[in-house]
Design a protein around this nucleic acid. Sequence first.
RNA 1: UGGGGCGUCGUCAAGCGGUAAGACACGGGUCUUUGGAACCCGCAUUCGCAGGUUCGAAUCCUGCCGCCCCAGCCA
Length: 583
Amino acid sequence: MSKKEKGEKPSNFIRNIIIEDIKSNRHGGKVITRFPPEPNGYLHIGHAKSIVMNFGFALEFNGRCHLRFDDTNPTKEEQEYVDAIKEDVHWLGYDWGEHLYYASDYFDKFYEYAEKLIIMDKAFVCDLSPEEIRAYRGTLTEPGKESPYRNRTVEENLDLFRRMRAGEFKDGERVLRAKIDMAAGNLNMRDPVVYRIMHVPHHRTGDKWCIYPMYDFAHCLSDSIEGITHSLCSLEFEDHRPLYDWFLDQLQVECHPQQIEFARLNLTYTILSKRKLIRLVEEGVVAGWDDPRMPTISGMRRRGIPPAAIRNFCERIGVAKKESVVDVALLEHCIREELNRAAPRVMGVLDPVKVVIENYPEGVEEELEAINNPEDPSFGIRNVPFSREIFIERSDFMEDPPKKFFRLAPGREVRLRYAYFIKCTGVIKDQETGEIKEIRCTYDPATRGGDSPDGRKVRGTIHWVSASHAFHAKVRLYDRLFDHPYPDRAAKNGGSFMDFLNPNSLKTMGSCMLEPSLKDAQPGKVYQFERMGYFCVDKHDSTSGSPVFNRTVTLRDTWAKIEKRFRQQQGQKSRKKRRRNRK
RNA sequence: UGGGGCGUCGUCAAGCGGUAAGACACGGGUCUUUGGAACCCGCAUUCGCAGGUUCGAAUCCUGCCGCCCCAGCCA
């Protein structure tokens, strides 16, 4: 039996550590994790990796996972973000139950620990300016110098720190620093700042505090207070681990969690840095944080991507310490895999051209039976109306088709899905532009439902919609935001990631014709438009009875591949020809 | 001789001294009332490189090479 069949998850180094820890009863056999976002922005697929890991391990080992807001810097944080983050985590399918925490809940405790550090003579109040502190810190290759304030007495430090808290000093005038080692090779250990003065109201504690703890101090203690066993974070915090351990060792806390670092997620054709995503929003490249092209959780939700697809994706990419870039094709695969199971099928013509079936009686209509999901009979069947005039996809007809084109062409017969075989008898074109205005066909009444009694085969089956029954709708075709697989890497040679924006990331189809059952489609619902892709009803722009659809992802398109290869071959041939002619 | 990490298929990624899993991508095929789905086949004689230890090395040792992170009173 394969691992998948047994429900076994693929091995990774963090799971191995946890399994070993349980075996050796290291944390009393418990597994308690946490997802600790700073509420200063929206969550994206990179955060989803962390969420799936933290909540996933908790679920897998019968532990629990906390949601903790790391809100120690009030200048950047807002309630709006905490609300959005909670919504996103829930939407992804996880529940923290009673365990919702805020670092700001612990401000009193942090303060006590800070005084304890001072009393142990392991911290001091420093009057150096930010610039001076930097200068004293030394460089990557040279040791730093000790602050002239490093040898203040415990009493003086305690007094100064209390006055810092009381608001006697201005922002930046003094800081509390840990007393460690100014010659340490790890810069984080060169007497790091522990508390800074900020006369800024906090979104939760208001004006209670004018000093706020730094990440390194607050994070390890938050973890410890909550009894976290495994504190997972990204690679760039590796250098902070000695400090994480130092604080907990000095303060002799009873719970000392283990910090484990893993590589962040990177995706091809995508950027995930908050700073850059902000640019996309602020410069109006996208319509907002929840634009369906954004890699944010809210954007993906609006795009129609099911949470199960994101969860599955995050489990399949694995966890390691190697910095890597995952092919976005894997995400797309996970989306299709989920939607193929879950999305009802429906017919919609995005770029319609009219077909008149000459031998079908005028004024007659009939109902044809269509299957809602061939993957799952429980989806049932529905009726779709048929009549003499229908719309088909403009790209499903070619006047002069290449070899492997199986669709409609003059003299050719195709099947209308769930309906009849039709044969093209001619086209009517616009006199001036030459554009095809109408395709003329005949149908074979004996093929009703799509089977021919005489056993005659057709290569192509195309989708359609009855002209008089269809309704008009707007459909937005989304594609990758960037047309370069590594917009960041490419930008290093002087340019910017903005140079690699895909000009075709959004194409609005304004005159689509959809089957009538879609008229009352509910916002958020995802359908498969047969042969076209998966489309979801937009939550913002749809109105009752007038849905707007977003394309979530296309279907795999073998024909497009054949076509592309064909075109490349043509290109090569003509290039060769030109070369030959030049000689 | 600053400190810390990482190098296994095009991309992720298992592997923990017994002779290179799996997934995506890619290529080929079967089937098909979605050129979808499903199914089948193929896809690393070799693990950054070079030595060494061993009956046996991706796994252990030594030395190179390459890439990433760190000098916020951000997280």
